[in-house]
């Protein structure tokens, strides 16, 4: 038996991502975000209408998020844990920051956010705004790729950025900010759901269903 200890621990970290459920999770969340942004297009009406849209947006994001979480958990339990086993990841304990440092960090993040928002509002044409969520998603996906050693996430990171650029290029300048960003998230949800389906298909092919519902030790 030749199993390297370092390989075993690396595979543990990547296990959550082997079945495509991570992409499904992100894809469905992106779809919710897309609907939320398309709802914002309508938010130029009366105060009551704006309030209703704000409320429905909140319900959509919180309710949809909970629903997606439950769906992914059911998929994991019904498909992955039955085939290749169950693990729950260890929560890494990080040292909490002292309160004064924490206040300083929050303040700096707030200032940086305000400067970025002002810069985007004044200097960046609205058609190029989808590039920014694309950039953020690409960075998050690259970090995931490094942590899990899953090569497909590097491809996904490139797609995240390119999709933002593509939406900006095809915009004829008439769409407006919300449609632009809504379109970006719709495109990303499609990409993620297709990628998740392909990963799940590969996983199911390698790991067929167990013959019968038996105890794990029998």
């Amino acid at each position: 038996m030749t199993v390297k200890i370092a390989d075993a621990t690396r595979r543990v970290r990547g296990y959550w991502y082997v079945d495509g459920t991570y992409e499904f999770h992100l894809g469905l969340t992106a779809l919710i975000m897309a609907v939320y942004f398309f709802l914002q297009v309508k938010s130029n009406g009366s105060g009551t209408e704006n309030l209703l849209i704000l409320l429905s947006g909140f319900l959509l994001v919180s309710g949809g998020g909970t629903l997606v979480d439950r769906l992914i958990r059911a998929l994991k339990e019904g498909v992955t844990f039955r085939r290749t086993g169950y693990i729950s990841m260890r929560k890494e304990k990080s040292q909490p920051y002292p309160p004064d440092i924490l206040i300083l960090i929050v303040f700096l993040v707030f200032i940086a956010g305000a400067i970025l928002f002002d810069w985007l509002d004044n200097y960046v044409p609205s058609k190029w705004l989808p590039v920014f969520p694309g950039l953020v998603l690409a960075v998050v996906t690259i970090i995931t790729a490094i942590r899990t050693s899953q090569v497909r996430f590097y491809i996904l990171a490139a797609i995240c950025l390119l999709a933002g650029i593509a939406v900006a290029i095809i915009d004829n300048g008439q769409w407006g900010v919300w449609v632009n960003i809504g379109l970006y998230f719709t495109l990303m949800s499609l990409v993620l759901l297709v990628m998740g389906t392909f990963t799940l298909w590969k996983y199911l092919r390698i790991n067929p269903a167990p013959p019968a519902e038996t105890s794990d030790e029998q």
Partner: peptide, 11 residues
């Protein structure tokens, strides 16, 4: 590396 693992995963 984990909090908990089941028998099947370890096997």
């Amino acid at each position: 590396a984990v909090e908990v693992a089941d028998f099947l995963y370890l096997q």
